[in-house]
Design a protein around this nucleic acid. Structure first.
Lengths: 116, 116
DNA sequence: CTGGATCCCACAGGATACTG
DNA sequence: CAGTATCCTGTGGGATCCAG
């Protein structure tokens, strides 16, 4: 029970799921990740990758070249989580319109009756 | 793409998924929810329910009695999300040990020194 | 290119007290 | 019982500069 919270917390942070989702199509470099996950800051990308790396969801491979090249990829476990993330994203796009409609609906009981 | 973020943000907040998960077995009253979702504060429960309600994921039914009785339940859409949440929780409990092990593993020094 | 180190603030969210 | 209203803190996370 409490253990679930541990994992949900990771899921809960702002960027983890996005990063995982973006790694679906294959390994990506640091800069590519930053481009792919629109809006993420360097700091957050680094921190998120470190977390995911430590959790064993994402692997980090650095090639000793100049300029340096580092690739991040999903581990098998990460790929497992990806499936769920994918399902979530799919669900999100299916219901986004409805949710958005609900959200923008004025909170007013004018024509309708018991809600609020 | 940006629309997904909208939904993920909801998923991302600390309590929504827990509340949804807890509503799996059926409608619950305010106080029951607070007991079921361990650690949630009144304020956060109220806010979360309001959000979920507005999004159309949770319904609110109040019975005009004394003392007042209010029940919260998943809407059909909410139940759809629940499935994914359930999958997520299942995944979480399956991999919790491995993740926890990884997390507590001392960061390997390898060739470069780490400090923190 | 791939990050690390700092500074800083908005805001999520806890604690507490009050009400219909 | 089912919330609302305040007050207050921790920290998530952005911006910026620096480094191998």
């Amino acid at each position: 029970m409490g253990s679930i919270r541990q994992v949900l917390d990771r899921v809960g942070d702002k960027w983890s799921l996005l990063v995982i989702a973006v790694l679906e199509s294959g390994p990506l470099r640091y800069t590519d990740l930053q481009r792919a996950v629109t809006g993420i800051s360097q700091r957050m990308l680094t921190l998120t990758l470190r977390q995911l790396g430590q959790d064993g969801l994402v692997s980090r491979t650095s090639y000793p070249e100049v300029p340096p090249r580092v690739e991040y990829a999903l581990t098998p476990m990460g790929r497992g989580l990806l499936e769920i993330v994918t399902a979530l994203i799919e669900w999100a796009s299916e219901h986004h319109d409805e949710i958005h409609l609900n959200r923008t609906r004025v909170t007013e009981p004018s024509t309708s009756a018991r809600s609020r």
